[in-house]
Design a protein around this nucleic acid. Structure first.
Lengths: 215, 215
DNA sequence: TACAAACTGGTACAAGCGTACCAATCTGGG
DNA sequence: CCCAGATTGGTACGCTTGTACCAGTTTGTA
């Protein structure tokens, strides 16, 4: 049931997952019904209950897929931008105390990578947070939520390392939390200063890392 | 319709709002139906559509009420705790550069004030965030969301002032965002270290305020 | 005390929901 | 080639939902 034996079945399950993720992004939680998903995926209604035990299971699986994509996209956007700034940056571990990318540039890369840059992406991120919050009520979703948090934190750590900053675990945690807070604010309200705020705040934080925690 | 002319009407509207807020906290968005609210409030079904034009309007009004209560409760918890530490603290503006409450103590007051300390409160805060996110989809909710953000920021600024810290606007923004991020994490997942993390992070941040932004 | 307005409460409706069911069809391994 | 098991697709059931409706009752005021 989880992994269909036949090729066409696998494609259908996949299409359902994609349709679920799309609907989740477009209209949030409430818009994801068996009927809507089936129609979007171009399969009959009954296929949804055939490939997923229940609506909740479908949503959980779609959430997982969205997380995968989001993490990958964020990482890619960041490294692409950073490497444009410092093309010779080696992929190996950063040397302690050597901030190779200026704080402001790194902060700009952070903002560009984390904040949504179009309406579709904004809605995707909105959906991710909705699912995340839902985990506060539904224990079945909690492991996924925790996994998302962990991967975000690991990504933050990695992005810092890539840009040449060596940070304590507490700093990573702080930066991640602040970035989350700012990102949510940017996603929900649309205030004009979201990018500027994040750049300012992150670069301030990175500035301090050198004087207080660098070699 | 918004403000009933008769006494009993006002009481009913109030009871509906309370019931709505309760249900919102207990089961989130999905659990708030006309029927559930009416039953909880002890009024007939039709009263819900009599006092509120629609379900959305009822929910928005309940959201507003929850925000009021949350802001008030958080502020009260913080000042109560701080004044226990520094009973002579005057309510006037803090003198520049003088950090009167040790960073660690202030951080502990922050954590105690912001993080939920029982299950009911956890669910209330969860509901607040759910509503906030919903504002990302529903423009009608956006002014309320913005108002919440603004009041939270003002509260952060005020709490810093009370404890004797003078911070730039950027610092207030950063601290607020980080606190939001940490609070959401604590509310959704229940990791054991939520309080410790917040104390550590906030006190680090406050430590830095003295050396870099004080007098 | 009369009367318009505010309010009550019971009921009805159409729509959408998750899920179950099942006869018909397809498909891959023996 | 054949058949057990995988898959299909159409339909149906029981339930909940938001909202509309309206004949009655209560209320504040003139």
């Amino acid at each position: 049931m989880r992994q269909p034996a036949q090729e066409r079945g696998r494609r259908r399950r996949d299409a359902l997952l994609d349709a679920g993720a799309e609907l989740l992004a477009e209209g949030g939680f409430a818009k994801v019904s068996h009927r809507a998903v089936a129609e979007r995926a171009g399969v009959p209604l009954a296929a949804t209950t055939y490939y997923f035990r229940s609506r909740d299971e479908l949503i959980a699986a779609a959430f997982e897929r969205m997380v995968d994509r989001d993490i990958a996209a964020t990482g890619a956007r960041f490294t692409e931008r950073i490497r444009r700034l410092a093309p010779d940056l080696p992929p190996g571990p950063a040397t302690a105390g050597t901030a190779r990318v200026p704080a402001r540039a790194a902060a700009e890369a952070f903002a560009a990578a984390l904040l949504p840059h179009d309406e579709a992406e904004r809605r995707r991120q909105l959906a991710l947070w909705e699912l995340y919050l839902q985990a506060g009520r539904d224990p079945a979703l909690r492991p996924l939520a925790r996994a998302w948090t962990d991967r975000c934190r690991a990504l933050t750590r990695e992005l810092l390392r890539i840009s040449g900053y060596q940070a304590t675990e507490a700093f990573v945690h702080m930066l991640g939390a602040a970035a989350d807070g700012l990102a949510i604010e940017a996603i929900v309200e649309d205030r004009p200063n979201a990018v500027r705020s994040m750049v300012e705040i992150v670069s301030h934080a990175l500035d301090r890392i050198r004087t207080t925690e660098g070699a």
